[in-house]
């Protein structure tokens, strides 16, 4: 039996500093799976990441409880987190600028 989710953003691990969009997410306060709210700054599509807290340049991005890269600029709570503001600590990410957006109008 499927119970529809009421939250829009998923916290995968307590130590994470990013949240995952469970579908299209609009700007403004959005409910998180841990019962809190985050004020989303840019509308994003399913699967995109939103900063849970402020993240300074060089700080590790944590998802699933582990580092998935580092912030390439300072990131504010509610910001969309993607290839424009984080980078791999291993090999550079290859993406097409035409399709890598992840935001929606």
């Amino acid at each position: 039996m499927t119970t529809p989710n009421t939250h829009k953003l998923l916290l995968l691990s307590d130590t994470d500093n990013v949240l995952v969009a469970l579908g299209p997410v609009e700007t403004g306060p959005n409910p998180v799976s841990d019962g809190t709210f985050v004020d989303v700054k840019q509308p994003v599509t399913l699967g995109q990441k939103i900063a849970r807290v402020a993240i300074v340049r060089g700080e590790k991005i944590r998802k699933y409880g582990v580092p998935i890269g580092s912030a390439s600029v300072d990131i504010s709570p509610g910001d969309h987190v993607h290839v424009h503001n984080i980078q791999s600590d291993y090999t550079p990410t290859h993406s097409l600028t035409e399709t890598a957006g992840g935001t929606h109008a």
């Binding site: 699967g47 990441k49 582990v66 998935i68 290839v83 791999s88 090999t91 290859h94 993406s95």
Partner: peptide
């Protein structure tokens, strides 16, 4: 992969919300 200059990461991965190879890996 570092020698090749590309990770095991396609453009569609980024479009689908993955930002780095570590994120895809996890």
């Amino acid at each position: 992969y570092a020698t090749l200059g590309y990770g095991s990461f396609a453009a569609g991965n980024a479009e689908g919300g993955l930002s780095t190879i570590e994120e895809k890996s996890m």
